[in-house]
Design a protein around this nucleic acid. Structure first.
Lengths: 194, 194
DNA sequence: GAGTGATTTGCACTCAGTGCAAGGCCCTAG
DNA sequence: CTAGGGCCTTGCACTGAGTGCAAATCACTC
C-alpha cells in the first residue's frame, strides 16, 4: 500500500531519464549522445538507465506510462459502425490531437538526420499495436484484414508526419494526418477469391 | 576495363557473406550468430564483413545487387493509367512474383523470434524507397500523397507477409499480397480542404 | 619487374547491452 | 529501537557491434 512513494519516485526517475534524453538528443543528435551522458544528466547511473529502458532508442520512443491507458480507453470509446475503417480513423484522429508534442520536433530531427533508420517503426509501434489489437478483436477470423487496417492507418500517420513542416505548429501535423486518413479506404475482401 | 574479375570476385564475396548469414541465422537465430561467425563461415575476416555490410542486419536484408536494377525496370515498365494506386499495385504484384524466396522463410523466422524488432522496415525498405521515388515523380506537387501511396502499399505487403503461413508455399504469400492490395484504395485528396 | 590502385586484414578503440552480486533505502514486525 | 525483507541502485566485468587507421596483399598495367 505504501507503494505510492515508491511509485512516484520510480515515475520521477523515468521522467528524468526521458527528459534528459530528449534534451541531449535535441542538442547534439541521437548518435552523439551516449547512455552515460543521459544517465549522468538525469543524476543516475548508467546501469539504472538500463533498468528503465532496454535500449537507448527506447528512452526516446517508449510511451509515457499514462499513454497505454489512454490508448486503451480510446479503443474502448471508439464508435462501432458498419465502417470499420471509419471507426479506426476516429481513433487515430483522436490520438493525434493529444500530445504535448515537444517530442514531435525531436522525432523529426532524428528522422531527418538519418541516424536510427527504423524511426518510423519506433515512433508509432505502440499505437499500431493498440490498433491491431482493436482490429483483431473486431475481425477475429480475418487476421490479414485486421493487420492491414492497423498498418494502413500507421502508414497514413507516418506519411503525414514526414510531410509535416516542423517549422509550423503541431496543428499542421494534425491537418495532414486527417487528410491522409481521409484519402484511404480499406475494404474487407472476402476470404474466398472473386 | 579489367574490372570484370574484380567485380565478380566482389560479387562472390558478397554472396558468400549473405549465404553464410542466411544459413547461420536459419540454424541458430539472429541473436545467436555473431559477425565473427559469419565472416569465418564465409572465409573472410570480420573486418571484411563490414566492408560489405554496414550492419549485421544488412547482411540479411540488403537487396541483392541485381535487385535495384530490376526494381528500377519495374517502375519504368509500370502502366500509367488514371488510377495511380492501381499502377502501384501492378508494380507490387509483379514484385512479389519474383523471388527465389528462401529468404522469405528466414525472414519469417526472424520476425517471429522477436529479435530485431524493426524487421518490417528492414524487409521492405528498398521496395518502399523505390515506390516512393516512383510516386514522387508522378505527384511532384503532393509529397503527402506520394509518401502515402508508397507507405500504404508497403503496409499491405507487410500485413500479407505476417499473415502468410510459412508452412505453405510462397505462392500463398503472393495470393495474400494480391488480396491485401485489392482491398485498399488511395484517393488523392485535394490540397485544399473540402 | 616495378608501380598503381583496390581490397583485405589486424589492431585498438568506443559504446550498447547484460548478468551478477553487493550495497542502500524504506517499510514492517517484533 | 532493532532486525529483517523487498525493492531499487550501483559497480564490475564481460560480450559483441561498429569504426578508424595503417600495414599488407592482391590483380593488373606498363
Amino acid at each position: 500500500m505504501e507503494q505510492v512513494a515508491r511509485q512516484s519516485s520510480r515515475l520521477a526517475t523515468w521522467h528524468a531519464l526521458r527528459e534528459a534524453t530528449l534534451r541531449l538528443v535535441a542538442e547534439r543528435g541521437f548518435a552523439a549522445v551516449t547512455v552515460d551522458d543521459v544517465a549522468a544528466a538525469a543524476g543516475t547511473s548508467r546501469r539504472t538507465f538500463f533498468n528503465y529502458f532496454p535500449t537507448k532508442a527506447a528512452a526516446l520512443f517508449d510511451p509515457e506510462p499514462e499513454l497505454a491507458g489512454r490508448l486503451q480507453r480510446l479503443t474502448e470509446e471508439a464508435p462501432v459502425t458498419d465502417d470499420a475503417w471509419a471507426d479506426l480513423c476516429w481513433i487515430c484522429a483522436s490520438f493525434v490531437r493529444w500530445g504535448p508534442p515537444d517530442t514531435l520536433h525531436v522525432y523529426r530531427q532524428v528522422a531527418e538526420s538519418g541516424e536510427l533508420s527504423d524511426y518510423p517503426v519506433q515512433i508509432h509501434r505502440h499505437l499500431e499495436e493498440a490498433l491491431e489489437a482493436w482490429a483483431a478483436r473486431r475481425f477475429p477470423g480475418d487476421p490479414l484484414h485486421a493487420r492491414q487496417l492497423a498498418a494502413t492507418a500507421g502508414a497514413a500517420l507516418v506519411a503525414a508526419f514526414r510531410t509535416w513542416d516542423p517549422a509550423t505548429p503541431a496543428g499542421e501535423f494534425v491537418r495532414l494526418a486527417d487528410r491522409a486518413l481521409a484519402a484511404v479506404t480499406v475494404r474487407r475482401a472476402g476470404t474466398e477469391e472473386t
